[in-house]
Amino acid sequence: MKKFILAGILAHTMLSTAAHAAEANAAQTLAKKSGCFACHNIDKKVLGPSYKDVAAKYKNDKGAEAKLVAKVKAGGSGTWGDMPMPPNSHVKDEDIKTIVEWILTL
């Protein structure tokens, strides 16, 4: 009986992990398609901060998602230095939300 329970837990964990990986891959592909990787990278600074640095900066900020969605949409400067981030009005709001959610998981 314990073997069946453990097998069920393991199967659920594997499916959840696979689903999370698929969502992360889809969000990363969306970020590339939207042009985000022209200025950002996952783990190193390009023109803008790395996505891991963004995730670390906002780790304990409960309002981070909404702030970042608004900032990506409107653009801005000053948070990471003088280099301005242009507005991304060409990217759909739901796509920006998906990308920001993914960045915050890094």
Rank of each mutant, 00 (worst) to 15 (best):
V72S: 00
A27I: 08
N60Y: 07
A24D: 10
I103S: 02
I5W: 00
G81Y: 10
N88E: 03
V69R: 05
L30H: 01
T13W: 15
C39I: 06
A26R: 08
N60L: 12
P86D: 02
T29D: 11
A66V: 14
T13R: 04
I9F: 09
A11E: 02
C36Y: 05
A21Q: 08
K3Y: 01
V46S: 04
K3H: 08
M1Q: 09
G75Y: 08
H20C: 02
Q28N: 06
K33H: 05
G76Q: 02
S77Q: 15
A31F: 03
A64S: 13
A55N: 11
P49Y: 06
H90M: 08
H20K: 12
S77N: 12
N41C: 06
A38W: 00
V100L: 07
D43R: 06
S89P: 00
A74R: 13
A19E: 13
A38F: 03
K33W: 00
K32A: 10
T17V: 08
L106G: 02
H20F: 11
F4A: 13
M83W: 10
V91T: 13
C39G: 07
K67Q: 09
H12S: 13
L15I: 14
K92V: 00
P49N: 05
P49W: 08
L47N: 13
I96N: 06
S50G: 12
A22I: 07
P86C: 00
T79H: 02
P87T: 04
K67R: 06
H12G: 09
D82L: 11
G75R: 10
V69I: 15
A56L: 12
H12D: 04
D95L: 06
F37G: 02
A55R: 08
T29Y: 00
D95F: 03
P86L: 02
H20L: 12
G78I: 12
K3N: 01
K32D: 12
A70T: 14
C36Q: 03
V91E: 00
D93K: 13
V100K: 01
K45P: 01
V69K: 13
D61S: 08
P84I: 11
V72W: 04
K2G: 14
K62P: 12
G75W: 09
K44I: 11
G75M: 10
A74K: 15
D53N: 15
A66H: 09
G76W: 07
K52L: 12
A38Y: 01
S34D: 09
L68W: 06
A64H: 05
L106I: 10
D53F: 08
H20D: 06
M14C: 11
V72C: 02
E94F: 01
T17K: 00
Y58V: 08
V100P: 03
A18G: 02
G78R: 14
L6Q: 03
A66W: 06
G8R: 04
L106E: 09
L15H: 07
E94M: 03
K57S: 12
M83S: 12
K71T: 15
K44E: 14
V54F: 05
A38N: 04
A7P: 03
A70D: 15
C39V: 08
D61M: 06
A19K: 10
G63W: 03
G35Q: 00
L30N: 06
D61T: 14
L104K: 03
W102A: 10
M1F: 06
M85I: 08
L10E: 00
M83T: 14
W80D: 03
A74M: 11
K44M: 07
I99A: 11
I9A: 13
A19P: 01
F4W: 07
S34V: 07
